[in-house]
């Protein structure tokens, strides 16, 4: 549904987005990650047609956003970063306007408003003026606006920003459910959100895509992904280490601690390890009749991956200068 091809945006001499390409099909929820100033919002603004790209193509459905902006925009719902709403309107008036300008008429409009008010829990503030709303309610109002026409494509810039934990959960649920039938892109700084909602995630740094994959694939790029911790009673640490070291797919084994009663080791698999390591270890334990006091396998962690591939400015700049 969304085809982004070699998208570039330059603000004067500054390249905010640098040759970004990706696609999102119906049924996919794409998470957009990246440090502040990476170019997430700029990319979304180009996809939604708010700012024209310096170079590159965006197609939404069958329409190019530059050549057929109106057709492309009809397919999209957009929640901008700051969740802007007209402050002089009531929530109902605002949603009514959003529906009308999208060409929803008569009874359909009533039903559409009713649907999003229910979905976003806006009933209690329906006739309140937007400028008296709390931040979270304003955010929800703008979110409601973006889904009022039940669009095929949904672009959301930090949709859960400023929401309370319950609402965050609620909104994630909505996104996930809608993601079954729509193509969705949303940006976030909350990494659990990516795991909970996204079918795929892209990490952007300084305007470039530095990672693109399912949340699991990304997590597996973590340094400690797949490392197995073992605490075994009544054996010598050196012996345990030697035995484990002989298994295939083991990069190295570290002896963490050892005393008269137990030994504790961590087993780091090779990067290309096929996944049979768990089985091998379990066989070994069986053969040796080791008494296991503790056994766990570390999941990769998204925040580790994120930190590893999006180094803070100072480090990278320093590296470049050297």
């Amino acid at each position: 549904m969304i085809h982004v091809e070699k998208l570039v945006k330059a603000f004067g001499p500054k390249i905010a987005v640098n040759r970004i390409s990706f696609q999102v099909e119906r049924g996919e929820v794409l998470g957009f990650l990246g440090p502040n100033g990476a170019g997430k919002s700029t990319t979304m603004r180009m996809i939604t047609g708010f700012i024209p790209p310096t170079e590159g193509q965006v197609r939404v459905g069958d329409h190019n956003i530059i050549d057929q902006p109106i057709h492309a925009k009809r397919l999209m719902g957009y929640l901008p970063e700051s969740a802007p709403c007209y402050p002089d309107m009531t929530v109902h008036g605002f949603l009514d306007f959003a529906a009308e300008i999208r060409g929803i008429r008569g009874g359909d409009r009533k039903r559409a408003i009713h649907r999003v008010v229910d979905l976003c829990f806006l009933e209690s503030v329906l006739h309140q003026s937007v400028d008296t709303l709390s931040k979270g309610y304003r955010h929800r109002t703008c979110f409601a606006q973006s889904i009022i026409h039940d669009p095929d494509v949904l672009i959301m810039d930090e949709p859960t920003d400023g929401l309370d934990p319950n609402q965050k959960h609620e909104v994630r649920g909505i996104i996930k459910r809608m993601g079954e039938k729509k193509a969705i892109i949303f940006s976030t700084h909350i990494l659990e959100e990516v795991e909970a909602v996204c079918s795929r995630a892209i990490i952007i740094d300084r305007g470039e895509i530095v990672a693109n994959g399912t949340p699991d694939e990304l997590k597996n790029r973590s340094r400690n992904a797949g490392t197995v911790h073992l605490r075994i009673g009544g054996v010598s640490g050196t012996m345990v280490r030697e035995k484990l070291q002989q298994l295939s797919g083991v990069e190295h084994v570290t002896l963490l601690s050892e005393d008269a009663t137990h030994a504790e080791v961590s087993v780091k698999p090779e990067a290309r390890e096929s996944g049979s390591l768990g089985e091998q270890i379990s066989d070994l334990i069986h053969r040796e009749s080791w008494r296991i006091l503790k056994l766990n396998r570390q999941e990769g962690r998204l925040d580790e991956v994120f930190r590893d591939i999006t180094k803070p400015d100072t480090i990278k700049e320093g590296g470049k200068a050297a």
Partner: peptide, 14 residues
């Protein structure tokens, strides 16, 4: 100032 321009100009209107 309100940022509503971003909303208005991403609506399907010229």
């Amino acid at each position: 100032r309100q940022g509503t321009m971003e909303l208005l100009l991403t609506m399907p209107v010229a």
